[in-house]
Design a protein around this nucleic acid. Structure first.
Lengths: 107, 107
DNA sequence: GTCGTAGTTCGACGATCACCGTACTAAGCC
DNA sequence: GGCTTAGTACGGTGATCGTCGAACTACGAC
């Protein structure tokens, strides 16, 4: 049948749907924090394969899914590649200072 | 024998010992977030019994212990009463904006 | 002394979570 | 067509977590 629009269900919460607790929960994991730091450091999209994390692909997918559902990162599909970016605007608007405070941390 | 100094084992991490991840983990729970919000709202010490949370005393003790170990709250013993306060200075110094961002959240 | 109050400690239980390997789909290239 | 690469979906497992009740300690008042 109509074949296309193949991929992108890719659900993201609207800005109003993002909760502090969800964001905190998402950030409260070393792997996910590392992902967020990398996204924040480059300030541009990074494909899954471009992220440096000490877990397997399936676990990485899991973490990205959590970050996406929490509203921390956005995903954009292009071919077989999924580009991830930080939803800095939304987070700064909702919780001003939170992200910067986290990223300002010593490590 | 030497009778006193009865109280304060009560370990708190030094400011340098506080980690972002620990703080995020501590805040990533509805009950603990409620505790922090109450402490921030009154901006003064609150005894365990003065906190309004939907859990039993033993669970409350557990949550306060986690918050204390993470460096989010400080505990001061006085008689049988334990007074808890937010370590706002330390948190603001380490992660400027983090706490305010969390507290600024809609709910 | 006895009693009540404030809070902690100790299991224990159920739920959630992070992690993995395997199997799978989709796109691009030969 | 077949092959490879990018990433997801599906169990499954072991660990951690939030919760509770019961037993306990410490202080204060009577």
């Amino acid at each position: 049948m109509a074949k296309t629009a193949a991929l992108p269900p890719l659900v993201h919460p609207a800005r109003e749907e993002i909760t502090v607790e969800g964001v905190l929960r998402a950030l409260a994991d070393p792997v996910r924090l590392a992902i967020v730091r990398q996204l924040a450091a480059t300030d541009q999209e990074i494909a899954c394969g471009g992220l440096t994390v000490p877990v397997t692909k399936s676990t990485l997918t899991h973490h990205l899914s959590i970050l996406r559902q929490a509203g921390v990162v956005a995903g954009r599909q292009e071919g077989t590649t999924r580009f991830n970016s930080l939803r800095r605007n939304d987070l700064d608007a909702l919780f001003p200072g939170l992200l910067d405070g986290v990223l300002a941390a010593p490590r």
